[in-house]
Computed example of a mutant assay.
Amino acid sequence: MGAGHAHPLYLDRGGRVHRLAPEVKIMAVLLFTIVVVLTPPTSYPAFAGYFVLVAALAVVARVPALWLLKRATIELPFVLLAIALPIVGHGERVQWLGMSLSVDGLHGAWNIFAKGTLGVLASLLLAATTTMRDLLLGLDRLRVPAVFTQIATFMLRYLDVLADDARRMRIARLSRGYDPRFLWQVKAFAVGVGSLFLRSYERGERVYLAMVSRGYTGRLPSPNDRRAPAGEWAAAATLPLISLGIAVLA
């Protein structure tokens, strides 16, 4: 469990973007997202430029477009909400295909769709080019409170263990001929969740005591303390700088 962990969204392509330090990629995506959020929803050329910029970054990072589109469907609930806004919105209305649509609702729907999609695509590119361990290391280098990074580190290390415990408990339940499928059988599921929580809590206590006895002081040692050189910061800064230029020109 001490080895590095990858997540399902990571693509090991070995490109130039992959080799950048995690903290510079996190900052680049964060600043790009801020520029996108602050862009007025009626600045349509700016959003077109942002999409072109994200597409160019995906090409440089060697992340397939189909891979991005499949995983971007996570925002589908928000897209459905955006579709409903023109119908239920108030204010000035326009007629389109026999439907009365709110102008403010149309602007709101476009705002949610455009900014949400750009944010999801940027986050997916960050996840595709950075392992989960490097993401946590980058957050730690950016001075994110240690309590958050340490909790996330432990969660990452023991998530597979907890999933395996839940799988074994389910197999044990099925081997005894009990497979709850209906609402009135939810008691078995609730008991299983409670048992898994207690076992996880007890394991966490044992692990913490073992770590303290070995000198743990609240921060895990980092095997690689390489700081990002100025060149990597400059390379990563091209994303927010170009997006800012697009916003200003648009």
Rank of each mutant, 00 (worst) to 15 (best):
residue 30 L to R: 10
residue 32 F to Q: 01
residue 77 P to C: 10
residue 97 L to G: 13
residue 209 L to T: 12
residue 7 H to W: 07
residue 31 L to D: 13
residue 202 E to D: 10
residue 156 L to N: 06
residue 168 R to L: 11
residue 146 A to W: 07
residue 240 P to G: 01
residue 81 L to M: 13
residue 104 D to R: 06
residue 196 L to H: 01
residue 138 G to N: 01
residue 65 A to K: 06
residue 128 A to F: 07
residue 200 S to Q: 02
residue 222 S to A: 14
residue 144 V to S: 01
residue 10 Y to G: 06
residue 166 A to V: 01
residue 150 Q to A: 14
residue 86 P to C: 04
residue 99 M to A: 15
residue 109 A to H: 01
residue 102 S to W: 03
residue 78 F to N: 08
residue 144 V to P: 00
residue 33 T to C: 11
residue 21 A to W: 02
residue 108 G to E: 12
residue 52 V to C: 14
residue 135 L to T: 04
residue 208 Y to S: 11
residue 187 K to D: 14
residue 94 V to E: 13
residue 2 G to L: 08
residue 161 V to P: 04
residue 222 S to F: 08
residue 223 P to N: 09
residue 67 W to R: 00
residue 75 E to G: 09
residue 96 W to L: 15
residue 86 P to D: 12
residue 191 V to P: 05
residue 76 L to Y: 11
residue 93 R to Y: 06
residue 187 K to Q: 11
residue 190 A to E: 09
residue 20 L to D: 04
residue 144 V to Q: 05
residue 65 A to L: 14
residue 215 G to D: 08
residue 97 L to Q: 10
residue 40 P to G: 04
residue 9 L to M: 09
residue 31 L to P: 06
residue 150 Q to L: 13
residue 126 L to C: 02
residue 221 P to I: 07
residue 232 E to P: 00
residue 43 S to C: 13
residue 209 L to E: 15
residue 94 V to S: 11
residue 205 E to W: 07
residue 63 V to K: 07
residue 46 A to E: 12
residue 145 P to V: 03
residue 79 V to P: 05
residue 245 G to K: 06
residue 42 T to M: 12
residue 124 L to M: 06
residue 143 R to C: 10
residue 99 M to F: 15
residue 132 M to A: 12
residue 84 A to S: 13
residue 14 G to L: 07
residue 85 L to E: 06
residue 146 A to V: 14
